[in-house]
């Protein structure tokens, strides 16, 4: 039996969760109990975080001839936490042309992940 403390990042409440862990017969960790959450998303998130943590990656992509030099972007689904810098590498290398519409897919499946990089704002052509 071991105990693991986590800060839930699902919402601004930032609940301090406690997960009780046990070694299963197969050798992997088994979560036996999660406490400290204010909503049901907490345990769900903790399980994900303890097995394979994921994050939404957020940055900007260079835009040519836009009313802004950069368009803000994010992954449309969270990616494995250890892939963040691989995804960033592709974001840094990318370039697009105005106009860009919010929601537009700018990179498909960066770093072999299943997600897409989408624009989060409109950039007009100038």
């Amino acid at each position: 039996m071991s105990k693991k403390e986590l800060t839930c990042i699902v919402c601004p409440n930032g609940c301090q969760l406690e997960a009780m862990l046990e070694n299963s017969d197969s050798g992997s960790l088994q979560i036996t109990e999660i406490t400290g959450h204010l909503c049901e998303k907490g345990p769900e998130w903790a399980e994900q975080e303890l097995t394979h943590p994921v994050r939404t990656v957020i940055s900007n992509i260079l835009v040519e001839s836009g009313d802004l030099p950069l368009v803000s972007v994010r992954t449309d689904a969270p990616v494995p936490r250890n892939m963040i810098f691989d995804v960033m590498k592709e974001i840094k290398a990318a370039k697009t042309k105005a106009p860009v519409a919010i929601g537009q897919i700018l990179i498909k499946h960066p770093a072999g992940t299943g997600c897409n990089i989408i624009a989060t704002k409109n950039v007009r052509n100038v």
Partner: peptide
């Protein structure tokens, strides 16, 4: 919000983790 490109906006209002520009839009 135009410069707050990170997510976490709108969880209460829209039940979604929007970025600042998306929330504003």
């Amino acid at each position: 919000l135009n410069q707050c490109i990170h997510d976490g906006f709108g969880l209460h209002k829209f039940d979604e983790a929007l970025t600042g520009p998306e929330y504003a839009q």
